[in-house]
Design a binder for these strands. Structure first.
Lengths: 241, 241
DNA sequence: GCCGACTGTAACAAAACTGTCATATTTTCC
DNA sequence: GGAAAATATGACAGTTTTGTTACAGTCGGC
């Protein structure tokens, strides 16, 4: 079926998320977080703008402020859920603290989840992933790509020019971190903090060893050059030589 | 003096930012944004924890919620600004919307800037950069440019007309220093102090050698002319021939 | 309890960087 | 033009940093 094909096609690309909030600052914050995580982010300030964008961009998930001028978030949610074209788009409601009882109404109206403001970036992302995984597994993994090197967090798989690359857990996390923080030097100690976790006391030279393992795993594909040594400073992931 | 050496050393490293907010979700959000941007981020939930962390980590900048349990943010700010050890640490106050008049009090107490919640990540980062640039340009980490010659402290990379220039650590520091202090002559002894560090006793002629190496590295691009010899005085970085 | 995969550490090898010196080369001033 | 001073250049050996490998301990599954 052509329609299905279209959907499938779409599902292979980067998840598109629409944030709706009357506060532009919140919108920018959301967009920052989402884009940083590799999602495609759109932002609408009110319900009509949201509807327009939904029609145009067909988001895979919607973050919806409960309180909106004109049409409230709940009304908008209800309308989306009542329309066969849009009813399958999952919605996460954003509610201000203390509006707990509203959450029931929000859920009643068909929202998949709700998050109270102020929310933590990590929590929000976790919920987004959970829902995307449930609704359409192929989407949840914002797969990261860098000329032929692809890392898919969901399937926990790395490929170089379509060839599977075998990595241990640490190497995977290391590569994931690098691919989300490109063109930037990190000292061994920073890497230990960010990839191993804070307050772990591990020899700095251990980082070298894992870099080595990662390079070795990438070697068959020639992609090991993205992991660059910056003498005296640390390591860097970069597409440029 | 040893103390001075420490400071100089410190200024070359990554900016450390402390966020203080009684709402853990906000703290996580801040940390997420800051770390993602490459800052070193710490987080404190209350004033006493903040004081402890300030003593321990010596942050380069503090994000301070106006409203804190126990001691308010303003009180804490006042205390920091009253202490000679901490008075030079810039503070950005985070105030809730509608507390506009409080902003004056915040500034009175010595805060460098204020941001109203909810804030946009981009805005917050922009203000942080502005302040860091003002307080200590070396920390801000924006890339330096001079007709085609670009030095990016973040990726620790130098390019001349888009072509990567390979530099050793000392040459990198030397160029970095020159690009942040253009159109000015420096004697060999000044350069040794500023680039190598104080209390290092090294032959002055050594500077010549590193200048030579730097020039050689820039030669392929023809950019070596920015490093000019000032006979009898030292060296100068200049865009003009 | 055994096996295999994974980690961190240590030790050695290789590579890169550094400071110094000896020797050109240039500039300045007489 | 020539001497003296200042700077440029190239080579070298010591040092530091990084690469690489081997090994032992840990953990989970079977």
């Amino acid at each position: 079926m052509c329609f299905t094909l279209g959907i499938v096609d779409h599902k292979m690309s980067i998840p598109r998320i629409l944030a709706v909030d009357d506060e532009p600052a919140v919108g920018e914050m959301l967009r920052f977080i989402l884009e940083n995580e590799g999602f495609q982010a759109d932002f609408a300030e009110d319900a009509s703008q949201a509807l327009c964008l939904i029609r145009k961009t067909r988001p895979d998930l919607i973050l919806l402020d409960w309180m909106l001028p004109g049409m409230t978030g709940i009304e908008l949610a209800g309308r989306l859920k009542g329309n066969s074209e849009t009813e399958s788009i999952p919605i996460i409601m954003l509610t201000a603290k203390g509006e707990e009882n509203d959450k029931v109404r929000g859920l009643d109206v068909g929202a998949e989840d709700y998050v109270t403001k102020p929310f933590s970036a990590r929590e929000l992302l976790a919920r987004i992933r959970t829902i995307l995984r449930r609704v359409s597994p192929l989407l949840a993994g914002t797969s990261l790509e860098c000329n032929g090197l692809v890392l898919d967090p969901v399937s926990h798989r790395v490929t170089a020019d379509r060839e599977t690359v075998e990595l241990g857990p640490t190497e995977f996390r290391l590569l994931h971190f690098f691919m989300t923080h490109r063109e930037r030097v990190f000292s061994r100690s920073q890497l230990l903090d960010q990839v191993w976790g804070t307050n772990v006391y591990i020899e700095e030279r251990t980082v070298d060893v894992h870099i080595r393992r990662l390079r070795k795993a990438l070697e068959p594909s020639g992609k090991q050059q993205v992991l660059q040594t910056v003498r005296g400073a640390g390591y860097r992931f970069s597409a440029k030589p």
